[in-house]
Simulated assay, not measured.
Amino acid sequence: MTTIGGFVFLLVTVFGGYTIAGGKFGIILHSLPYEAMMIGGAAIGAFVMSNSMHDVKHTLAGFGKILKGARFHKGDYVDMLSLLYFFVRLVQTKGAMALEPHIEKPEDSPAFAKFPKIKEDHHAVSMICDYLRMVGMNADDPHQIEDVMARELKKLKEEEMHPSHAMQNIADALPALGIVAAVLGVIKTMAAIDQPPTVLGGMIGGALVGTFLGVLLAYGLMGPMATRLKGVVEEEAKYYEVIRAVLVAHLHGNAPQVSVETGRKVAPSPCMPSFQELESALQELQIA
């Protein structure tokens, strides 16, 4: 909601200052639909040309992330750390074979059923099961597994960053597209050079609306939205970094409590549970 509030505040200050300075909205309102059609249509066309259909859908889904923010909160980190604690403790007490019912059929696992939000997260389930399966296959070199996980997380982050890059590319193009609309307005004005100065002034003012609109949309809307989406993706990526931190700490031979404490430190500061909060959750953890 802060994105919407910020944009509304931007419009109020820009057009409020214009009004206070004695500006009139007649020319803007008259030219706005045509200029918006040219600039917006050109931007959409360029966006579709430069992206696959999968990337187009991915970018459209990114607008939801901009409005909602990161989908992981403190409780989600507590749940993830609790689940990982259960798994690494299970390995320590009963051996890697005890993991098999959980990682081979996670949809039937009582451990995943305890945390439905994690169970619905394909990336989280896949990471946990794949790397715990590697542990069961005696791939116990922590440095090797950490390197593989780092590469997978980098790939996942780059894929999730694409909508932000696509939005930023459109933001970079909007000022030039605004100039295109303005030039067309100037061409229209030149074709009516025999009109009185008052008419020509209105036509030139209408042409400049294109430049104004392109710059406003670029630096006042699309640019900030691309930056916001980038921040959301980077924050969500920390959730998966927690998985890596816990499993690698476990492979280094640390106790389950130490492994999850290592993962807790990776969580973003606003979402990081306190030591007491996590300890309380682990003490209350009951999985059949």
Rank of each mutant, 00 (worst) to 15 (best):
F115R: 10
K117T: 03
K117C: 07
E120R: 00
E120S: 04
E120V: 03
H122A: 15
H122C: 10
H123K: 05
H123V: 13
A124K: 01
A124Y: 13
A124D: 06
V125L: 06
M127P: 01
M127D: 12
I128Y: 07
Y131W: 11
L132H: 10
L132K: 11
L132M: 14
R133V: 12
M134A: 11
M134S: 07
V135Q: 15
N138M: 14
A139P: 09
D140G: 07
H143R: 15
H143D: 12
I145R: 09
E146C: 06
E146G: 06
M149H: 09
A150N: 08
A150L: 09
E152W: 11
E152S: 10
K154F: 13
K155Y: 15
L156Q: 14
P163V: 08
H165W: 02
H165D: 06
M167G: 04
Q168M: 08
N169E: 05
I170C: 02
D172Y: 02
L174G: 01
A176S: 09
V180I: 04
A181F: 00
A182T: 08
V183N: 03
V183K: 04
V183L: 15
L184A: 08
G185L: 10
G185T: 06
V186D: 11
V186F: 13
K188D: 13
A192W: 11
I193V: 11
D194S: 15
Q195H: 05
Q195R: 08
P196N: 15
P197S: 03
G202S: 04
G202W: 12
M203S: 11
G205H: 07
G205E: 02
V209C: 08
L213E: 02
L213D: 02
G214N: 03
V215A: 07
L216G: 00
L216E: 06
Y219C: 01
M222S: 04
M222A: 07
P224V: 08
P224Y: 04
M225P: 00
